[in-house]
């Protein structure tokens, strides 16, 4: 166990250095969420009315926080596929290290990246009018829900990277599922306005639970307990299944 923790730390440090030394990633992780904030705040925001909210920006920022944690994890599919094809994963697998640490380190680094993006989105959001309407514990819990969800999906994307094995395929395979998950949800608009089938999907898929939980915990307009428990439950299930499958795959490449 102590080897697992120390090896995870070593790999996480490597992943963070990689992130910070790759300008494209830094730009993608910072510019892109800011663009979403400004786009939805000023381009679409004027024509979107959400019942119960005086200002669309209060509705929007929890959605963008959830969206960025998903986007943040998706690059892991490419990173994992690259490490596989470059032989770096084989190097790790030939060392007397803890094998689960290989992906644990990479996914924990994804938490750090997401924390950076979430704080950035929150600050930019506050510049354009976003406000918290609850107490500090609820806000911290909201961030926790977002980061846990991002961590779970980082494992899911790592699994996709291991299965697909090449960077181009991994990029495609990770991007395709993101769009329905992010947009067919309560991220930018209420599912109540969507047609029946889509509405059913939107109301029952994990992104909506996460967005609703963060919204409730930061705005206080709706009860937070149910969506928060569902969001945490979804995250733990996704995490457990993805981590189990990814590590099993890592043993038998």
């Amino acid at each position: 166990m102590s080897r697992f923790l120390s090896d995870t730390r070593v790999i996480a440090r490597r992943s963070l250095k990689t992130l910070m030394r790759t300008p494209q990633i830094v730009i993608f992780a910072s510019i892109q969420p800011m663009m979403f904030v400004l786009l939805f705040r000023y381009v679409f925001g004027g024509s979107i009315r959400v019942p119960g909210y005086d200002s669309y920006v209060d509705y929007l920022i929890p959605g963008i926080i959830s969206q960025t944690t998903l986007f943040g994890g998706s690059s892991l599919a490419i990173v994992v596929a690259n490490d596989l094809s470059a032989g770096i994963t084989d190097r790790f697998r030939s060392l007397p290290m803890s094998r689960p640490a290989i992906l644990a380190g990479a996914t924990i680094a994804a938490i750090a990246r997401n924390a950076f993006t979430v704080i950035l989105v929150t600050l930019v959001g506050m510049l354009v009018g976003f406000r918290f309407h609850t107490g500090v514990p609820q806000v911290l819990l909201a961030f926790g829900v977002a980061l846990l969800f991002g961590f779970a999906f980082a494992w899911c994307f790592a699994l996709i990277g291991i299965i697909v094995k090449n960077a181009e395929g991994a990029q495609l395979a990770s991007f395709l599922p993101i769009f329905p998950l992010v947009f067919a949800a309560s991220t930018f608009a209420s599912p109540r306005t969507m047609p029946d089938g889509l509405r059913w999907f939107a109301e029952h898929q994990p992104v909506t639970q996460v967005v609703d939980s963060i919204r409730a915990l930061t705005q206080g307009v709706a009860p937070a307990t149910e969506p928060t428990l569902l969001a945490i439950g979804w995250s733990l299930v996704i995490l457990a299944v993805s981590a189990f499958l990814a590590n099993r795959r890592l043993r038998n490449l």
């Binding site: 080897r3 090896d7 470059a86 190097r91 790790f92 290290m97």
Partner: peptide, 26 residues
């Protein structure tokens, strides 16, 4: 093991690569 492909990390320095491997040996 020294592989067919140079399995070293391009965005780390040479020293960082080897120190990382050393730490992964425990």
């Amino acid at each position: 093991l020294a592989g067919q492909f140079a399995a070293v990390d391009g965005v780390l320095t040479g020293r960082e690569n080897l120190e990382m491997v050393g730490q992964l040996y425990g």
